[in-house]
Amino acid sequence: MIHQLKKLGILLGLLGCMNHSILAATSDDRSQNSDYDLDEKTLHSQEVPVDEIQRFVQIYALIKDNYVRETSDDELFEQAIKGLVSGLDRYSRYLTPTEYHQLIQYTDGDVATVDFDLSLDRAQRQWYIRGVRPNSDSAKLGIHNGMPVYKLDNTELKDLNPNQVKNILLGAVGTVINVQVAPVGQPITVVRNKKIEVEIATTLLKNQVLVIKVPVFQQETASEIKSILEQYANSKVKAVLFDLSNNPGGLLSAAVETADLFLNNGIIVTTRSRSEGSQTFQALPSKEFEGLKLGILINSRSASAAEVFTAALKEHQRAWVLGEKSYGKGVVQKLFPLPNGAAVQMTVSHYFTPNGNMIDGRGIQPDQSMPRLANIKDNTYLENVADALLKH
């Protein structure tokens, strides 16, 4: 082991005398191309911080010599890389070759859930894990059938109904959810990798408010919404309420196109990046739906592209926003494939609203706060929100 550390120290010392390159492949929202030319995709170089590297080697030696369980070099370096990336923010992470292979099979905008089910023991008011398959990703994490679940992403489950729990489990494909399986202690981080098919749904309420439920922003979302509104063009619809509650986001381009249906001019969203500069998305002149009264319903799980759409219509005073403060995920992430088949999923840009407000970590405040109570039925809540929209 001492010999290995000496070699590592010599290698790192040599690295300190030269530059190294960070390699990446990029796309609109995230890269899905792992076959890139190393020379063409070299972005920039920077000197290796020698003092910090030496400190890393010292800690590495301490662990190799003293940790209670013998650990391999591969295991330690894998953990070090994961910590390096995950420490950047709550979205960036290192993907193993298997995780990366799973992720690139999906399309941006896909919605997914975990690969197990949750069932409620009503007598105990306790949720339990069911449906774990042998050799599944969750099983490999130590999750098994009959295991109790107390929290999902720090939300207590005991007073939630099945639909509310289902909504927490759903999210953008490839994102993670923290599953608390003990009253105290560290949660288990599970990747949402089971794709769920979702569609836009419409409901015309008795008060003539048309509710359009948008579960996620996908490639055809704008054209689908345009088609729905054209179908109701000759009806007596008094207002349209976009239900974006539990919408995890999806494609930025789809949110921009959808917002553009209802804006005549001005900024929809701006992205700012240290490595790629800024990009501003402007609305094109259009008066097709300018006389339509609009409302947007959001909650604490409305995120990313859903927040971009909401902020654009709110700040241009084109829609009345109701519900709860949104999640606050205003980032663009990209995949950086690595030669060993793994990848780094990293935040490269932030979203800013038309008024220049940062979305990430702050969320969008509704114009009218209308939190959803646990004991209220979905239909009743929607009717209350629709009534509030008409009164505005």
Rank of each mutant, 00 (worst) to 15 (best):
333 Q>C: 11
179 V>Q: 12
197 E>L: 09
317 Q>Y: 01
365 Q>E: 14
202 T>F: 03
163 N>C: 01
225 I>L: 12
93 R>N: 09
286 S>Q: 14
7 K>F: 13
38 L>F: 12
291 G>Y: 03
116 F>P: 01
358 M>L: 12
180 Q>A: 15
167 N>I: 02
277 G>C: 08
141 L>A: 00
358 M>E: 09
376 I>G: 04
24 A>V: 12
253 S>C: 00
138 S>W: 09
284 L>D: 13
367 D>E: 10
346 M>G: 08
122 R>V: 15
199 E>H: 15
109 G>H: 07
53 I>R: 12
358 M>W: 04
160 L>K: 07
5 L>E: 09
230 E>S: 14
295 G>D: 04
144 H>M: 01
218 Q>K: 15
191 V>K: 04
26 T>G: 06
169 L>M: 09
361 G>H: 06
307 E>L: 06
17 C>K: 14
81 I>P: 02
380 T>E: 15
223 S>G: 12
232 Y>E: 02
46 Q>K: 14
49 P>I: 06
129 I>C: 04
235 S>F: 00
77 F>C: 09
375 N>I: 11
154 N>G: 06
227 S>P: 02
284 L>C: 14
195 K>S: 05
379 N>D: 14
195 K>I: 01
95 L>V: 02
323 G>R: 00
122 R>M: 12
17 C>F: 12
130 R>Y: 03
230 E>I: 13
361 G>D: 02
297 L>P: 00
334 K>W: 02
103 L>R: 03
240 V>N: 02
387 D>Q: 12
352 F>K: 05
62 L>E: 15
348 V>S: 13
52 E>H: 12
321 V>C: 01
90 R>M: 01
167 N>M: 04
225 I>W: 09
41 K>G: 13
322 L>Q: 03
386 A>S: 11
263 L>T: 04
15 L>I: 05
131 G>E: 05
45 S>T: 15
391 K>C: 06
4 Q>P: 07
200 I>T: 14
354 P>N: 01
347 T>P: 01
320 W>Q: 01
307 E>C: 10
243 D>F: 04
81 I>C: 08
27 S>G: 05
189 T>E: 10
151 K>G: 04
115 D>W: 11
56 F>W: 13
60 Y>G: 01
282 Q>D: 10
290 E>W: 05
207 N>V: 00
71 T>D: 08
210 L>A: 05
19 N>G: 09
225 I>G: 11
29 D>K: 05
320 W>Y: 06
367 D>F: 10
227 S>I: 04
245 S>C: 13
323 G>I: 00
90 R>D: 14
334 K>D: 14
140 K>W: 04
3 H>I: 13
347 T>C: 11
11 L>D: 09
51 D>G: 03
269 V>G: 08
193 N>A: 10
145 N>A: 02
56 F>H: 03
197 E>S: 13
365 Q>R: 05
103 L>V: 08
152 L>W: 08
40 E>S: 14
254 A>W: 00
79 Q>W: 07
343 A>D: 09
93 R>F: 03
309 F>L: 15
148 P>K: 06
218 Q>D: 08
98 T>V: 09
195 K>F: 00
17 C>L: 13
163 N>K: 02
343 A>F: 08
307 E>H: 08
2 I>A: 05
77 F>E: 11
109 G>W: 02
377 K>D: 13
315 E>Y: 07
147 M>F: 03
278 S>G: 10
233 A>W: 03
25 A>Y: 10
167 N>H: 07
284 L>N: 15
55 R>H: 10
297 L>W: 04
343 A>K: 02
276 E>G: 10
336 F>L: 09
